[in-house]
Computed example of a mutant assay.
Amino acid sequence: MTSSYEHKGKKLKDAEEFLSLYIQETDLSEDWLHERLDDIKRAGSYNPTTEELVFGAKVAWRNSNRCIGRLFWKSLHVFDERHLETAEEIFFALIRHIQFATNKGKIRPTITIFNENKVRIWNYQLIRYAGYEISGGTVGDPDSIPFTKVCMDLGWRGAGTPFDILPLVIQVGNNKPALFEIPKEAVLEVEIRHPQYEQISKLNLKWYAVPIVSNMKLSIGGIEFKAAPFNGWYMGTEIGARNFADVNRYHLLPEVAEAIGLDTNSNMTLWKDRALVELNTAVLHSFKEDGVSIVDHHTAAQQFQLFEQQEEQANRKVTGNWSWLIPPMSPATTHIFHKPIENLIKKPNYFYQNRPF
């Protein structure tokens, strides 16, 4: 069993490693580092400054092995909200995050960091659609069914449509989780239509503009921030080839195929592939026409290649999770598919954590 002394020593070592990286990539000196470490040892624990927190959150994105969009890691906007105490204050900070990140469609990569010991956000993403079990099937997003039940146990009642936006569930300390409805005007949604196939428009599909992940923890210098929602912008296949197409999500390929008249009687017709391409075309077309930031998977792969080049120039080893970096549609058309990459975990980073319900 690890003693509290050993645990404390490891956390101080983690802080020293992080701050050593911090001075390597800034203009700070070794003397500054020694003074900072002396202060931390006297205090007995590490409490990052806002400047250190900003640096750590950005580098955590740079180290995120599953993310193909790391080229833009330096552009991350960081809100330090560790001082907030109540669920209401945290809710208003989350709404600000949504509105700031959305930016009328010109999406800004953003993270909001809350007190590491007190705050937990129960949502998978700040904005996500509900899922309901009904006789004979599911309405909405099947992946959201467990959390939708939690929200209903807390008193929420959705409209029962395929695209009901779930409320925010915020827990402070050991208090009972508090539920807050997200104002409709805070959420930008895109109605999905196709440039050629009007039948796809008649499926009445839509998706929210900004994917704000809220179930991961941010690890910086031995400190784990369990509530640190962050976002970039969507790669089109995340919506068109996964959220809409996966059989355990909205499972829309049969409907799309029928809508555009494909022969679904045999796999040899490649109807799934053709429906998948047209569904992804519709997603990209709709976001672009509405002026909402999005990237196609070919461009995203080219951006990742540029990220690789920049990291090599900075003498940093590029790491990644290959199975996540290859796009879920036509992966062999990208350079990533043909290039081995080591899935070495570096810190700072974002990590999955057990869900609180």
Rank of each mutant, 00 (worst) to 15 (best):
F147W: 14
Y124D: 15
D141E: 05
H335P: 02
G291I: 02
V283T: 10
M268V: 05
L270I: 06
I23N: 14
F100I: 05
I326R: 05
T112W: 01
N175G: 12
Y132I: 10
F225E: 04
I68T: 10
A15F: 05
P195T: 01
T237S: 07
V139F: 06
K288G: 06
H7E: 01
A209P: 05
G158C: 06
S20G: 06
D143N: 15
S330Q: 13
V213K: 04
Y129T: 14
S286Q: 02
R62A: 12
E191W: 00
T299C: 04
L270D: 08
I145V: 14
I68W: 04
P211Q: 06
Y197P: 01
R108D: 01
I212V: 12
A87G: 14
P195L: 04
A227F: 09
F91A: 00
F79G: 00
H297V: 11
P142F: 03
Q303W: 13
R274D: 00
N65S: 06
P183S: 10
K10L: 12
M329D: 11
F230C: 01
G261L: 00
M235K: 00
A282T: 12
G69F: 09
G136Q: 07
P331D: 05
L126E: 00
V318I: 15
W32K: 13
S201M: 04
A93R: 08
F337P: 12
P348R: 02
T161R: 11
L325G: 05
F357E: 07
L262D: 00
Q196C: 11
K184S: 14
T110Y: 03
P167D: 03
S20E: 11
N174G: 11
Y352R: 08
Q305H: 14
L262K: 06
A300C: 13
S135W: 12
S4I: 10
Q313I: 01
Y208F: 15
N115G: 08
E17F: 04
H251I: 11
N215S: 15
A301C: 06
K118E: 14
I336E: 10
R36M: 09
E81S: 14
N115E: 04
I260Y: 01
L33V: 10
R316V: 03
K74E: 12
A60G: 13
G44L: 11
Q303M: 11
N174P: 00
N243T: 09
R108P: 00
R108G: 02
P48R: 00
P229L: 00
L188M: 10
W122D: 00
L284C: 06
C67Q: 09
H298G: 10
E342S: 13
R42N: 05
R316F: 04
F287G: 03
M1C: 06
G69T: 06
N265W: 02
T264C: 13
S135D: 10
F91Y: 15
G320W: 07
F351N: 08
Q125N: 05
G173T: 02
L276G: 14
P331I: 07
R36T: 13
